[in-house]
Amino acid sequence: MYDSYFATAMRYGMDDYEAAIRPVKRQLFAELASYLTRPASAGSGSGTDGGSGSPPIRRVLEVGVGTGPNYAWYSEALSAAVAGTGAGTATAATAEVAGPTTTAAAAATAGLPRLQVVGLDPSPAMLRFAEESARAAGMRLAGDAGGGGDGGDGIGGGLDVEASLIEGSAEALPFADGEFDAAVVTLVLCSVPSPAVALAELRRVVRPAGRLLLIEHVAAPPARPLLRLAQSALTPLQRLMADGCCLNRDTGAAVRAAGWGGVLREFDLEGMSILAPHVAGLLVR
């Protein structure tokens, strides 16, 4: 009953947060889409061989996929990358490769990879909502015939992106070493029992030079002692009400200690009060 309650609360009670974080997600998912849609020769990694001359397959793992709020961002960013507009942030190299095409066949002709997005979450109730979100975003659920989910046109008017959903834990990922080209983690490390173990598992399953898109709320820095104290005082209640979520974790330090490279931006999210301190970035394995 609690899982069902919490999944419903996350599905219908996060609008204010999603509105506040929108500019950050738009930028990071555009950068991720640009990386994923580059051909193998552009230095984005070889991906998995599609066989018979088919384009390579690029795989993305989203850990703690929840109700699937990020699926719409995959759809927007991938559509822009394929169309060559880049949503204002995709690279010129992507535009040169993709051109104005939007159909799956044209994308294959242009040498763009096929994309698979694997969503993992320990909650079956969350995964039921995530399936709805994936279909609404134009993704094809694994096992569906054809693209676009329930009669949709696919991403970008035809780009076939396959989504699969798996029940599992961030601390024991059921995947082989280096199986993914990228991973996505948003609002997850606040609630896993051991962020260090989860980050180590992510490094294991993401191939060398792969990417990690990360957005997390974190503890206030020591320079803000009153907010930091309030976060610590309220964490027991928060853990009880929000499925183990901790307000006072120094997730930025854990990410750096885990060996991920790149720029990890620290910022306050407007209007989020005690949840305002955040870190985010597109990091490199």
Rank of each mutant, 00 (worst) to 15 (best):
N248T: 01
G259E: 02
D250Y: 05
G244D: 12
V255C: 04
W260E: 00
T251P: 01
C246A: 15
R239P: 07
T235M: 07
A258S: 15
T235V: 08
A257N: 08
G262R: 04
C245H: 10
D243R: 11
T251N: 07
R265W: 01
T235E: 06
R249A: 07
R249G: 08
R249S: 08
A258H: 10
G259F: 08
Q238M: 11
P236R: 14
W260S: 02
A253G: 11
G261P: 02
A242D: 09
A242T: 12
V263W: 00
T251V: 15
R265L: 03
L234H: 04
C245Q: 09
C246T: 09
N248W: 04
G261M: 09
R265G: 00
A233T: 11
R265F: 01
R249M: 03
L240P: 02
G259A: 06
V263A: 08
R239H: 09
L234D: 06
R249Q: 07
R256I: 06
D250H: 08
R249E: 06
P236T: 14
A242P: 05
E266Y: 03
L234P: 07
N248C: 02
R249K: 12
T251F: 02
R265V: 08
A254W: 09
A254Q: 15
E266A: 08
L264D: 00
D243G: 04
R256L: 13
R239K: 15
C245G: 12
M241Q: 11
V255F: 03
N248R: 01
G259P: 07
L240Y: 11
G259L: 06
G262K: 00
M241C: 06
R249H: 09
C246W: 12
L234Y: 12
R256K: 13
L237P: 04
L237A: 15
L247C: 11
A253Y: 05
G261F: 02
T251M: 02
A258D: 06
G261Y: 04
G252W: 02
R265D: 10
G261D: 07
Q238F: 08
R256Q: 08
